[in-house]
């Protein structure tokens, strides 16, 4: 099946080359980098290496980047879209495990999860992860062990939902929406490394805001998603 790897990148000039190299060495899938108007020379690095890159003229955040990637996947007739961070945290060798699950029609969305067979460490970050997982459990009855994982593969049905509904984000609340729309979600064990350079999209001050947004979205908005429409 035609597979596209979407790599959102904001100020990732130091990581992006390594990420794409890793992707090319370990997989044979197409990829597209979404350069979210980086302030550093991410754009130049991509152009110099002749990477497949879409450059946004205004910085609009991760959600907008993923939505653009989904639009690109939809317009070019891809069957599977994989969300993959450009900061070197994700490892390309696990992508084929996710894609395989979708190709074998075991699920509609495959999540690269850190905690399928491994235990969650007890830290502040993981407390947030647990709380979100709890909210998902309450609203859908489904157990998702690593809801905040940024490595996800979507099939055509999910891509279409993304293109049609502009309010969908690449965050856990969308998983609730997808479950309510009767899509099947499966988690696959992956390893993630720590960031090497640069800052993440989720800075410490912002994580509080993120948690509040997620809770309101999951409990009050996504929880009442109807099956059809």
């Amino acid at each position: 099946m035609k597979t596209l790897v979407i790599i959102p990148a904001y100020n990732e000039a130091l990581n992006i080359e390594k990420t794409v190299k890793d992707l090319k060495n370990n997989t044979k899938y197409d990829y597209v980098i979404i350069n979210d108007c980086s302030k550093d020379n991410t754009k130049e690095v991509c152009e110099k290496n002749n990477f497949n890159v879409l450059s946004l003229p205004i910085n609009y955040g991760l959600t907008s980047g993923i939505q653009l990637g989904m639009k690109y996947a939809y317009q070019n007739g891809y069957d599977i879209a994989v969300q993959f961070d450009g900061d070197g945290q994700h490892q390309a060798k696990y992508i084929k495990d996710l894609v395989k699950e979708i190709e074998e029609e075991n699920c509609d969305i495959a999540i690269g999860s850190r905690f399928v067979s491994k235990k969650k460490p007890k830290s502040m970050r993981m407390l947030g992860s647990r709380l979100i997982a709890g909210a998902i459990r309450i609203t859908t009855g489904k157990k998702i062990k690593d809801p905040t994982s940024g490595m996800r593969a979507y099939n055509k049905k999910a891509i279409e939902l993304f293109v049609k509904n502009a309010s969908l984000t690449p965050e856990p609340d969308t998983l609730v929406y997808m479950i309510k729309k009767q899509l099947k979600i499966k988690e696959i064990q992956v390893e993630m490394s720590d960031r090497e350079f640069g800052e993440s999209y989720l800075k410490p001050i912002k994580s509080m805001e993120y948690m509040i947004n997620m809770f309101f979205s999951i409990l009050f908005i996504r929880a009442i998603t109807r099956k059809n429409i």
Binding site: P57, Q67, Q75
Partner: peptide
């Protein structure tokens, strides 16, 4: 609307 324009320009 701005987001859509942003995407449109990039594509």
């Amino acid at each position: 609307k701005i987001k859509d324009l942003n995407h449109y320009i990039a594509l």
